[in-house]
Structures are given as structure tokens and as C-alpha cells.
Design a protein around this nucleic acid. Structure first.
Lengths: 136, 136
DNA sequence: GGATACTTTAAAATCATTCTAAATAGATTG
DNA sequence: CAATCTATTTAGAATGATTTTAAAGTATCC
């Protein structure tokens, strides 16, 4: 059973053309759970499912989704750009050994004081990264 | 007037061999103010000062300094690894247009509640990045 | 000073990502 | 529905940051 219909609605609303590739990737990403993906990891997943798709297409698609506001870019980890399907303001645990990201429930962190911004600037986003490693 | 003596002490304490290149870079980095550098930016600065040094040496040196605890790695910005001479726990403004980082005074941020860590993990470090852009 | 181990170096290799140019496939219009 | 227009896909080349390699150089220890 596919999300096809939801994905199609979503792409239409975002003003993106309905291509097979975008629908397929949309179905993968926007299921029940929030996901963190890189172009590479997503491409591997797609190949495992028996579909052929150029790596460049995966990059294009992720960037288009991001531009359309369907994905959020997360702090790069080990030089790899990670996209997050969770658009709400939230923070991450980063496993420094594996590069794996885990969402931190928003309610568990609160930033009491915020510094004043530099003159003439506005905040685009904010992200707390808690780097964790296996206990020694 | 050079920091030579301080740098030499620092390298010795860190158990690093005293090479011309490390002393030169040490002098550049550990002056009065805290600095954010990438291998590339540091290499350019060195060339401007009329010194020749292989880019790979700059990479090696930064990594050695980092391993020895003299530098902190900061969240990568646009795929570029940035090293910070400020080892204290602190946060950054990131100018999304230029990639420039600015320290946020520690006292200006406080994280009220901290989430509990995943089982069997310990915190290595923590960093809040506030992405800012010129006001529209 | 000479042996030994670590560093530096230039160049090649690697890895993630982007670009290119041609082929393909949505969208639009008559 | 066909013709046309334009965006997208694709394979492969190109780019840019970083790492590796192997050889030459240099700090350290005896």
C-alpha cells in the first residue's frame, strides 16, 4: 500500500512536477516516522528496493524538496549533508562514532536566554547538537 | 615579536614534535584572540605571509593539534571543517551567506533543561548554532 | 654523530557533490 | 490528442575538500 496519493498532493501543493522519481522518493520519505537521510544513503535504499535511479537525481530531488520547504537541512556530519523530514524546530543527538542522528523531543530542551543578534541580521534557524559517544 | 616560546611550551606539553611548521602555525593560531580557521584559509594566510608550506601539512598540523586537544572542531559549514581555538564550551552565530562564524558569549545562553542521553552513551560536546542572514 | 621514528612534501587518489549536454518526459495549448 | 514547450533525468565529466602515498627531510634519543 503506497502513500502515492498523499505524495502527489504534497508535490502539487509545492508546485513541483510529478515525476516518477519524485513520487517514489516522496513515498519513501514522508511515511509515518520522521527520517534523516543523505543523498548517498537514500540512493542505496532505493537500489536495495530494486529501482534504478541516478545518484544525481537523488541529489536534485532532495534539493528541490528542500527548496520547496518539504525538507530541512541539518548540520553537516562528517562532510555529509543530511536532510530531515521533521520540519519543526528541534534538536539532535549525534553519535560521533556512526554519524547517526536522533531527534530530541522539543519539550526536553529549553533555551533560557537568547543572545542578541548582530546588527542587521535575522535568525534563519537554530540547532543544538549534542555529540554523544559510547560510555568508556 | 613572536609567541615562539609559548608555542614551544604548548607543543612540548602536548607531546608534539617541534617542527618549524607547527611552531609557525602555533604562533599564528594561539595569539591573543580566539580564531576560527579552515585548512584552506590558514594555508592562504601562510602564503600571504610569504611562507611556503604544503596544504597537506596544514591539514596534518590542524589534525594533530586537534588530537592533542589544542583545537576544537566546529560543526562543518558548507562542507568545510572549521577548527576553533576557543576550547571552552560556547556557541556560534553562523552567517549562512558567508559561512563566517562568530562566538556567542557563554553567559548569553543557558540551556535550562537537558534531555536524558541514550542508554550507555556520554556527552562529548554540545553546540548551539544560530544561523543568521542579512535582514530582508 | 648515527640510528630510528616521526614529519613534510608533491602528487595522486578519494569522496561527496555539482555541472554538462543530450535524451526523456511532464505540462500546456490548439 | 498531437505538437510544442520546458523542466527533469541521466551518465559521465568536473570540482573542491580532504586523505593517502611514497620519498626525502628532520627531530629526538643514545
Amino acid at each position: 500500500m503506497s502513500d502515492n496519493q498523499n505524495t502527489i498532493e504534497m508535490l502539487k501543493k509545492a508546485g513541483l512536477r510529478l515525476t516518477k522519481q519524485r513520487i517514489f522518493i516522496g513515498d519513501l520519505l514522508f511515511g509515518s516516522k520522521h527520517k534523516h537521510v543523505s543523498a548517498e544513503s537514500l540512493h542505496k535504499q532505493i537500489e536495495k528496493l530494486g529501482k534504478k535511479m541516478a545518484l544525481a537525481t537523488v541529489y536534485n530531488c532532495l534539493h528541490h524538496f528542500h527548496k520547496a520547504g518539504l525538507l530541512k537541512k541539518v548540520n553537516a556530519v562528517n562532510d555529509i549533508i543530511i536532510f530531515d523530514t521533521n520540519l519543526c524546530y528541534h534538536h539532535h543527538f549525534l553519535n560521533v562514532d556512526t554519524g547517526e542522528l536522533t531527534d530530541i523531543d522539543e519539550s526536553n530542551v529549553s533555551i533560557a536566554e537568547l543572545p542578541s543578534l548582530p546588527e542587521g541580521f535575522e535568525t534563519e534557524s537554530m540547532e543544538l547538537t549534542i555529540r554523544v559517544k559510547p560510555q568508556t
